[in-house]
Design a protein around this nucleic acid. Structure first.
Lengths: 127, 127
DNA sequence: CTACTACTTAAAGTGAACTTCAAGTCAAGG
DNA sequence: CCTTGACTTGAAGTTCACTTTAAGTAGTAG
């Protein structure tokens, strides 16, 4: 266990090598050890990538992920970090869900409407 | 009724003049009549802008809106146009809603978790 | 005449998160 | 020795929907 190339990590994680390099460049990942100039990893980087991916699936931006990873004393528990990140993230997500539900409703309306023109649709669905 | 400047239309619609010019430039709006080189509108442009805004609130891209507006014979009823646009738009929206609900769930989990490290959070919430 | 305001244009800039490119290095296989 | 494949770097390109900028024009108020 140890000594994976960036290609290996890319395959295992499903994240393109170019993206892994990019994450290192911007400091999301630590600078990898080099052998003959080439990056060499052990499996801990997979866990680090998992954290990044999790945060991304939760809708955090890269800058927020930076804070999450490096903006706290090492002893600070995970939940406190998440809480500190975006105090109103839940509300933001709820708002986005409501927005999509509005979209959905309007789409259903127009798919079944009997407006002759698009302008009529717009009148029926005012902003 | 008639003879509005682009500034008037911007105020009435809430859409920046720069955006209105942009829409004209890319063909979303017809080329406006000019008087002394300046755009002059009547109120029909407000209805056209309403259609654009409605389509945007429904999640359509500009290229799709182009099709919606100009990709059909003039006699084609509105509902058929909407239907032709993105046959699976409803499913796409539903998928986005589900994605956000997953986000929401994960966020709630991590906000209340007792993981010591972020890596543990990632393990509990696998991709 | 001079400000001032609102408008005109083409072209360049913005932001986010990558991706692609050009040019080069390195080790292994034949 | 030569080719192949995977890697390296910094820089530039991509996407989308605008926004901003620079330089200029036209009408109006004082």
């Amino acid at each position: 266990m140890s000594d994976f190339s960036i290609g290996d990590i890319a395959k295992q994680s499903g994240i393109p090598a170019s993206t892994i390099r990019y994450y290192e460049r911007i400091g999301l990942l630590p600078t990898a050890k080099r052998i003959n100039g080439k990056r060499v990893y052990d499996e801990t980087v997979l866990a680090q990538l998992s954290v990044i991916m999790l945060a991304k699936t939760m809708g955090f931006h890269i800058e927020e992920i930076q804070t999450l990873l490096h903006g706290f004393p090492a002893t600070q528990p995970a939940s406190e970090r998440w809480q500190a990140l975006a105090p109103n993230k839940l509300e933001i997500i709820d708002q986005q869900i409501r927005q999509l539900e509005t979209m959905r409703y309007r789409l259903q309306q127009t798919l079944a409407c009997d407006c002759h023109t698009l302008e009529q649709c717009a009148q029926v669905n005012p902003r």
